[in-house]
Amino acid sequence: MVIDLNTGAIVHWLRLEGIVTELYDVQIIPEAQKPMALGFQTEEIAKLITLEL
């Protein structure tokens, strides 16, 4: 679930159907305005740059 911490309202959710054998990580993204998930076969994934410092 994506929860607005200011209001406590659920603003979005994701339901996984079937048996989940692994769930790698859950994160809180401070001050995120528009987080999104990218599919591996989308044009956006080719433009994604990740820097690890």
Rank of each mutant, 00 (worst) to 15 (best):
M1T: 11
V2P: 00
I3K: 10
I3T: 08
I3M: 10
L5P: 13
L5Q: 12
L5W: 03
N6K: 13
T7Y: 10
A9S: 08
I10C: 10
I10R: 15
V11P: 05
V11W: 08
H12G: 15
W13N: 06
R15V: 13
R15Y: 11
L16S: 10
L16P: 00
E17A: 14
E17L: 09
E17D: 14
I19A: 13
I19H: 09
V20S: 14
T21A: 13
E22A: 14
E22N: 12
L23D: 11
Y24C: 05
D25I: 12
D25W: 12
D25K: 15
V26M: 06
V26Y: 02
Q27W: 02
Q27E: 05
I29F: 02
I29Q: 04
P30K: 13
P30W: 07
P30E: 12
E31T: 06
E31R: 08
A32Y: 02
K34A: 10
K34E: 09
P35G: 04
P35A: 04
P35K: 01
P35E: 00
P35V: 00
M36V: 07
M36A: 10
A37L: 14
L38T: 02
L38Q: 03
L38I: 11
G39D: 05
G39A: 07
F40G: 15
F40S: 12
F40W: 07
Q41E: 14
Q41N: 15
Q41H: 12
Q41R: 12
T42S: 15
E43Q: 11
E43D: 15
E44T: 04
E44M: 06
E44Q: 11
I45R: 01
I45F: 03
I45M: 03
I45Y: 01
A46M: 02
K47N: 13
K47F: 02
L48N: 01
I49N: 10
T50Y: 07
T50E: 10
L51Y: 11
L51K: 12
L51R: 15
E52N: 07
